[in-house]
């Protein structure tokens, strides 16, 4: 069966099993490897992408749910790494190993769309699904606040 969807602004027609999770379509079929596999069970957020602007865990999202919709991945967050969050992440040295950071950025970007100046509680709540084993949480919080102008 074929699935049509828009990925990072580009129309794609795919011949894939509609039940295949979006994560594996992105990584194995389309070669968009910026989106990471961390748990496969909606527990870690490494696979976070936007579906119609909303945060989804692509590891548990069958690709059929993206039929006719638009998907944004880390590769499409900005054309050149210039999204204010990406810039703040680099300036403030947020990443350690970097593996979780695509997911963190996608969640943070969606958060700022909904709440341009999020409170601490809103940050903690919306970022709760994104694990970072390296422990970059404090810097993530600070970077989000810096971009939103809401921080110290």
């Amino acid at each position: 069966m074929s699935i049509s969807l828009r990925i990072n602004g580009e129309e794609r027609l795919l011949d894939v099993d509609p039940e295949m999770p979006l994560l594996w379509v992105l990584r194995d079929v389309l070669g968009l490897t910026g989106t990471k596999y961390g748990c496969g069970a909606a527990l870690c957020g490494a696979c976070t992408v936007h579906l119609e602007g909303q945060v989804v865990r692509s590891c548990v999202t069958p690709v059929r749910r993206a039929q006719g919709k638009s998907v944004t991945t880390i590769e499409g967050l900005s054309p050149d790494g210039s999204h204010p969050l990406q810039r703040a992440w680099v300036e403030q040295g947020v990443p350690q190993c970097g593996f979780c950071q695509a997911g963190q950025l996608m969640t943070a970007a969606a958060l700022l769309k909904e709440h341009p100046v999020p409170t601490d509680a809103q940050i903690d709540q919306s970022m709760a699904g994104n694990l970072c084993r390296c422990g970059t949480y404090c810097r993530i919080r600070d970077a989000i606040k810096k971009v939103s102008g809401g921080g110290r």
């Binding site: 490897t33 910026g34 989106t35 969050l85 040295g93 990443p95 970097g98 593996f99 950071q101």
Partner: peptide, 14 residues
């Protein structure tokens, strides 16, 4: 390596 990490370009094992 910050820019590579935040754009999804850094190449990990997988």
């Amino acid at each position: 390596d910050g820019p590579a990490y935040v754009t999804g370009q850094a190449m990990f094992g997988a």
